[in-house]
Amino acid sequence: MNPTLVRWLQAPSIIVLFLWMIVPLSMTVYFSTIRYNLLYPERSGFIGLSNYEYFWTDPSFLPALLNTLILVGSVLAISVVLGLAVSILIDRPFKGRGLVRVMLISPFFIMPTVSALIWKNMMMNPIYGLFAVVSHLFGAEPIDWLSQFPLLSVIIIVSWQWTPFAILIFMTSLQSQDQEQKEAATLDGAGFWAQFWNLTLPHLARPISIVLLIQMIFHLSIFAEIYVTTGGGPGVQSTNLTYLIFTQALQGFDIGVASAGGVFAIILANIVAIFLVRAVGKTLTV
């Protein structure tokens, strides 16, 4: 192909993605420095960093930031540890393995609003939910999960959705592990843990780091699961940054402050993204 044609073919994807990145981004940055509230259209003008100051000093900001970190951290820990355990458990030939795999990864394909509502109603409801029924069986008082432990409830729901993702990735990666090496280790008398620490874990080091980074990107912007279950409450107990910005924008109509929050979220995500892009770049051969 001649170089001109190559350039013409590449141009559309580069141009649309460039526009998609630069137009909304510069608008967000611009909005974040002006007075912009849909309820008070007559107030306008440049106000510097006041929106940021307002966003940072909002009493909900610190709890939301803390909730975001707890949510991301716990889901990461649960899904990676559980994902490792399960994928090693099924990394052996047995009858019905295909079915077990399909059952294990299915939750990942359920849309977020559906999984959140199944858990909210049929599992965690304090009167009719299955958790309540089980605690009655043991003679315990049922727990009203969503109002007593709102953040924990969201963590459970998101972990249920994302552990299958970790299982899927680790399972795929384990299939490329050198089986002869493992057999040789077994013959040499290496036990399960010795093999795990010295063979399996090093083999999974890359997939683990990729899973951590990708989940971090997605979990920083968890929205639907909170939107349909707790609505961020009670109070701000289960509000994360994404949800806080959402409430300021579409419920408080304060575009300026919400944009300042948006810029903050973008910076936070980019810190993670730098590492992810580097990790992926290493595997890309041009």
Binding site: L25, T28, S221, I266
Partner: peptide, 12 residues
């Protein structure tokens, strides 16, 4: 560009 959090560009 995939890492851009949706909420960061929701308003525009």
């Amino acid at each position: 560009t995939k890492m851009l959090p949706a909420v960061g560009v929701l308003m525009p």
